[in-house]
Amino acid sequence: MIEQPDNAGSRPRIARLYRLQWEEAQQAHVLLFPEGMIKLNGSAGEILRRCNGERPMAVIVAELEVTFATTGLTADVESFLTAATEKGWVEWSSP
């Protein structure tokens, strides 16, 4: 079963089959997995690089709002992480 971000304390992390890294040549974060690669756009990269299994989603949102000097990112981050969870990129640990 895929755990969903159903609880504010759950902490997302990059799933076991994936590796996230910054690629200088592509000027982008990429997700690497067996025999494949996904090039991420800027905001996807910024969200995923904070998914280290230690920060709850609320903390990630707060960090992003500081970095981009904005507010109200909760819904965007949540919908991205839901999609990323469905794709299998992200797993969740309970608090």
Binding site: A25, E35, G36, M37, I38, K39
Partner: peptide, 19 residues
Amino acid sequence: EQSLNTEQPIINVITPPLW
């Protein structure tokens, strides 16, 4: 046998090798 799963747009400049 090899397989490939990259997402890359079609562009006319020479792109670097990724694999």
